[in-house]
């Protein structure tokens, strides 16, 4: 959890996550003599659950606003983008799949079957591909392995999006290009 985002995250308006301000709670706990232990557990649990977005609810935007968790299904070939490695992957949660662009050390650190928590990620067009990635501001961390159910359709990267007629700043779904990833076909 990145503290500089605190004000934004705690707003209760659209797009914000409605998290409670935790500072008052913290005082309460420390006074009660629980010390940092339980306090930190509460913070950590909250930071994972309250901010978790289902992949199917992602909408492309030029912001680092995606906090989610997914399992890596398949890895493509590593390529060099300048001096940095990149690697396109197929990831998914229980609601949808999407193409996730790994970058730098991520390419070696993450394998198929790893469960990744993405904080402040961005879902946007990168060289004409609609991909999810951590970006410079976000962070992807491995939090587990294997124990996550997933679906491979719909694939959010295989959906055509158009600007919302009533709100040109927002995207809405226009059509399904392909039910599954055209790069990583389902295992027969």
């Amino acid at each position: 959890m990145h503290l500089q985002k605190w004000d934004m995250v705690c707003q209760k308006e659209d797009g914000a996550l409605g998290l409670r301000r935790l500072a008052p709670l913290k005082d309460l706990f420390l006074e009660n003599g629980y010390g940092g232990l339980k306090w930190r557990r509460i913070v950590n649990e909250n930071s994972c659950r309250a901010t978790m977005l289902s992949l199917k609810d992602m909408v492309p935007a030029a912001q680092n606003n995606i906090n989610t968790q997914f399992i890596i299904l398949d890895k493509g070939k590593m390529t060099l983008e300048g001096k940095y490695k990149t690697c396109l992957t197929l990831v998914a949660d229980e609601t949808a799949a999407v193409h996730f662009q790994m970058w730098g050390d991520e390419c070696d650190a993450f394998e198929g079957g790893d469960i990744i928590r993405l904080v402040d990620g961005i879902f946007s067009y990168n060289r004409n591909n609609l991909v999810l990635r951590a970006g410079k501001k976000g962070k992807a961390e491995k939090v587990g392995e294997f124990c996550m159910a997933f679906v491979e359709t719909p694939n959010m990267s295989e959906i055509r999006w158009i600007p919302d007629p009533s709100n040109p700043k927002k995207y809405v779904q226009d059509a399904v290009i392909s039910p599954h990833s055209h790069i990583f076909p389902p295992v027969p």
Partner: peptide
């Protein structure tokens, strides 16, 4: 801990108690 691996909550709790 591997690179880009989230730290263990158990370890975190233990370490914080220890530091305190």
């Amino acid at each position: 801990i591997g690179s880009l691996e989230a730290q263990s909550q158990i370890e975190l709790s233990l370490r914080q108690a220890f530091e305190l």
